[in-house]
Amino acid sequence: MSGILIAIVLLTILALFFGVLLGFAAEKFKVEGDPLVDQLEALLPQTQCGQCGYPGCRPYAEAIAGGEKVNKCPPGGTATMEKLADMAGVEPEPLTVSEEVQVKKVAYIREDECIGCTKCIQACPVDAILGTGKQMHTVITDYCTGCDLCVAPCPVDCIDMLPITPTVKNWDWKLNAIPVQMLEEDTKC
């Protein structure tokens, strides 16, 4: 009988002790804010393209934290989707839109066709288009996220999405894929 009593007392003391410990820890190491949204947002490509149906990347990150599906970000591709799923603790799902070939593109305005309507400037989420009314516009390629949003509003269809041409500076070391190109047939030897 006393054995049972001792056990009960011991367990009670232990339970109290750990309860106090946990309570203390919860107070002491309390985490402010919702870092999940920040972490999710950090994973998103920040193209601000709105293809997910949210006005920008942060709202989508907030939506994912609130239970939205992780497969609505075409610019991020499958890789981003997997990371998002991992971070949000959900199962990865195939992307809603079929993933395009992951070549980074930037907008390019055919400048002699531009009529200076500023529609693309208003559409650009990251202010990467320079120009004013009736003046030719141009894309600041360094700032362009390749989101595509300026292409549709253009009344004269003078905006193209062109893949970034590889140069010596931004060239990637992938030996099997060295963009070997003969500029001119050299006949000298």
């Binding site: 030996l175 060295i178 070997v180 003969m182 050299d186 030897c189």
Partner: peptide, 8 residues
């Protein structure tokens, strides 16, 4: 003339 390429 084009040559074989390989990584160092």
């Amino acid at each position: 003339m084009a040559f074989k390429i390989a990584s160092s």
